[in-house]
Amino acid sequence: MIELSDVAYNYGGAELFSGLSLALAPGSFQFLTGPSGAGKTTLLKLCYGDLRATSGVVSLFGQNAAQMNRDEIALARRRIGVVHQDCQFLDHLPVAENIALPLQVAGRANEAEGNLDELLAWVGLSAQAGQLPPELSGGERQRAALARAVITSPDVIIADEPTGNVDWEMSQRLLTLLVELNRMGKTVLIASHDLNLIRAAKAQVSANVLRLKGGRLQAGVAL
């Protein structure tokens, strides 16, 4: 689905990582760990086409990202649900409209009618549907971001520190939602430095742990 082959990325003239390879197989569940500044967010951005690799090949659903135009990248992103660390909402729109936004831009707004209420209930935000994003708590924002990421039923879900701003209980709820999605066949990649969360996940699902450190990516990391 998404494959990085011998990828390097330079930031501000300095090499952030190089010779990096990664394959997100269909239905897999992977954690990406590593110290702050190691390039986890950059690696995720390469995976959903928000950045272009300095060298190497990033393949999005069989297409070389370097050769894709902006429209093709946009179409690929519709198959990838992304939960950003800072959530990234349109603050002037109510939560429900923010969650339905991916359907809206994909010209599938009519699908929102049936799915939206169900999805809001699934993430426990039915009561907050009409509120604006700035009015939500950190946990509510993360759940809203997760709902937005999955509303189009994407093939891949990429989450960047989805539990970074929430308490342990909320982390568990978010993790449960992601595990449920994985059991539904979705490919999941989560960047997190929360080892307790990773352990909790490994107890529920077969998860591979990757560690990005010193510009190198190590797979099958044991905790």
Binding site: Y48, D50, R70, D71, A74, L75, R77, R78, V82, H84, Q88, F89, L90, L101, P102, V105, A106, R148, T152
Partner: peptide, 15 residues
């Protein structure tokens, strides 16, 4: 910022 969010959720330039 609005444009960035729209792009991240898969909006094409024409949209």
């Amino acid at each position: 910022q609005v444009i960035r969010v729209l792009r991240l959720v898969g909006a094409r330039d024409t949209y």
